[in-house]
């Protein structure tokens, strides 16, 4: 049985040099109108498909009538923003004003779900910022929901991130995302290595993102539209498009498989804060 890291374990780990965090009660975020939820999609390694996952996630939530706002931390020009400009703001997570823009408005914004696409190398600093601002304490108090999709690459360095992230996610729904977009394997062929990384951390589960063929992926890139807009044969501006039915079919099937994964982990229940999720 995998052991959740204890506070002692955490302090004796790689982050020993960090001063111990004094957990004061976090300031209440705001009067509750249904618990707000922050969904972080990130990885320290680049090129593992973080923004793709964030895009699919936004499509999934929209398809399920969940109003969502998104933040793209790839400043100054974000990729997520390019595909979802109407609901995305580009922010710099290291800037206090942008942190306020996200966290202070979580409970007051009309939109209760916020998705943050963390740029490469930005995951640990983002988690640190969430801790420093007291956000993680608010999560512990149950005032706000926190879901982390940690997108993994196939390198040992990527897997090492799991241990680095684990101390921050005691109270979060922490999901490891195996993205097969690039035919990646995750050391399933090497049981010792696989066990070493995947069985020693307590997560809410794993998500597998299947591969989408290159041509379909490229065409959506060229279209510069959300996946769902491409499938609906519309341009980014909402006009009629002339995309190949074959490619749209592949994208739709791929989206459906990912939606099955989100359904499997009961993502909507988690966002709604429903018991048992």
């Amino acid at each position: 049985m995998a052991q959740r890291p204890t506070k002692e374990t955490k302090q004796s780990s790689a982050r020993e040099e960090r001063p111990p965090v004094v957990r004061e009660k976090a300031p209440a975020l705001a009067p509750q109108r249904g618990r707000p939820t922050l969904i972080l999609v990130g990885a320290d390694k680049g090129g593992v498909g973080k923004t793709t996952i964030a895009r699919v996630l936004l499509d999934y939530l929209a398809a399920n009538n969940v109003l969502t706002r998104a933040f793209d931390t790839e400043t100054p020009r974000g990729t997520l923003y390019r595909f979802h400009p109407d609901q995305t703001s580009v922010v710099d997570l290291t800037s206090t004003s942008d942190q306020m823009k996200i966290i202070d408005t979580l409970a007051t914004a009309q939109v209760r779900v916020s998705v943050v696409d963390v740029r490469a190398g930005g995951l640990e600093p983002a988690l640190q910022a969430l801790q420093d601002t007291g956000f993680l304490d608010a999560v512990a108090e149950g005032e706000v929901g926190f879901i982390l999709f940690h997108v993994l690459g196939s390198s040992i360095a990527s897997l090492d991130e799991i241990a680095e992230v684990a101390p921050y996610v005691d109270d979060a729904d922490y999901f490891l995302v195996k993205n097969h977009v690039n035919d990646t394997t995750f050391f399933e062929w090497d049981p010792v290595t696989h066990r070493k990384y995947f069985e020693k951390v307590e997560t809410a589960g794993e998500i597998t993102i299947p591969k989408l063929n290159e041509l379909s992926y490229e065409q959506v890139e060229i279209a510069g539209a959300p996946f769902s807009t491409f499938v609906a044969n519309r341009t980014a501006e909402g006009g009629p498009a002339d995309h190949s039915f074959v490619l749209r079919g592949y994208v739709r099937t791929w989206q459906n498989r990912i939606a099955d994964e989100f359904d499997r982990i009961r993502l909507l229940d988690r966002i709604a804060g429903r018991e048992g999720a």
Partner: peptide, 9 residues
């Protein structure tokens, strides 16, 4: 995939 497009489309 290009063959599939030529056919099914």
């Amino acid at each position: 995939i290009r063959g599939q497009i030529s056919l099914f489309d």
